[in-house]
Design a protein around this nucleic acid. Sequence first.
DNA 1: ACAATTCGGGAGCGATCGCTCCCGAACCGA
DNA 2: TCGGTTCGGGAGCGATCGCTCCCGAATTGT
Lengths: 201, 201
Amino acid sequence: MARPRQFDEKNAVTSATELFWRRGYHATSVRDLGDALKLTPSSLYRTFTDKHTLFLRALDHYRATESTQARQRLDAADRPVREVLREWMLWLVTCPADGESGRGCFVVNTATELGTTDEKVRQRTEAAFEVTRQALRSTLAEGRGRGELSADLDIDGAVELLFTTVLGLRVRERAGHDLERLTTAIDLAIRALGPAPAEPA
Amino acid sequence: MARPRQFDEKNAVTSATELFWRRGYHATSVRDLGDALKLTPSSLYRTFTDKHTLFLRALDHYRATESTQARQRLDAADRPVREVLREWMLWLVTCPADGESGRGCFVVNTATELGTTDEKVRQRTEAAFEVTRQALRSTLAEGRGRGELSADLDIDGAVELLFTTVLGLRVRERAGHDLERLTTAIDLAIRALGPAPAEPA
DNA sequence: ACAATTCGGGAGCGATCGCTCCCGAACCGA
DNA sequence: TCGGTTCGGGAGCGATCGCTCCCGAATTGT
């Protein structure tokens, strides 16, 4: 029983996410957002309450798209674990190459910029991290169950190593490091899972 | 032939470094800096030109203190390589515990906040990264030379893996992750260097 | 003693910050 | 048709941003 919106709220959140992703929270002004989303201040505040709330929306949107896609790529059904892991990590350091690179990971950027000062942000970054860890865990467990990984493999430990490596890779992509070097790091991280156990004949 | 300063420039840079380190570049205002360094705007600008230049000074100061100390701790003479690496990485994720934690690494925080947009900043972060890589390289080379590491060890690759892991650890410390989990990741990263070669009798 | 020079302190510049309010127009249900 | 409600647009709020300028005081070399 009122006038409907002339803009798509979802598109607006997408644009806001890209902006926050590239520049970070503090370096992105409300006017920048207004220009990018093609929203006047009144519409922006009526829809998103304030800058901080919009930022949380952007974080949630990122988790619902990029993070979810990352998890799916790791769920790769019945392909060899090492291959899945390798391609997944390679994708992590090249995915933002749709046009531009050096954006890193929005969650990692946010975690380092705001640290643990902002509780609502911290909850979201931590939840995103935990999702990744769980995805790694199930992938490794499946691989071990199929006999591709040693039965002695310490999965919890391997998860911590791979997860830490991924965060480092994201930082390095943001810093503009060579893909070649990152690939080297990826290959060695996977090799750290140990050799494939000998097949019982 | 003029009135001397009433403040210690070095102390001022140290305070500025702590502030930029904790809050990042954009979230730290010139007035915050003035309060912390106990400098009036006129003194601050006369001495440090502007905020951006002071930030570069802070980055240089950090590299000359924290980064240098980190490199020295890695130079640990004749102790076992794995032990040196393990204690070094543990120190990296606990060193800011002089009072407060969750500061991460100033260089890593800066690299993710500003990305590659600021050329002068990029040069400094990249130089700091390269110093760390070189330190890792020489440590590994020495360990291999002493027979503690396999002669087949791909040192360049191991450097990339350890360096990437370190960046990840720094992010996780900033994010407030448990020391226990970080220790697990550290131990597995070191184990990735392979077993000690059998001693020739 | 005296000119030269830099100091610390502070007022305040224009610009931008995040945000609010008011407006006439557009759209809805009854 | 028309009252009710939300819309897009824009002026502009107080606060803070990075930064400049001017001042009297302090310390220098001569």
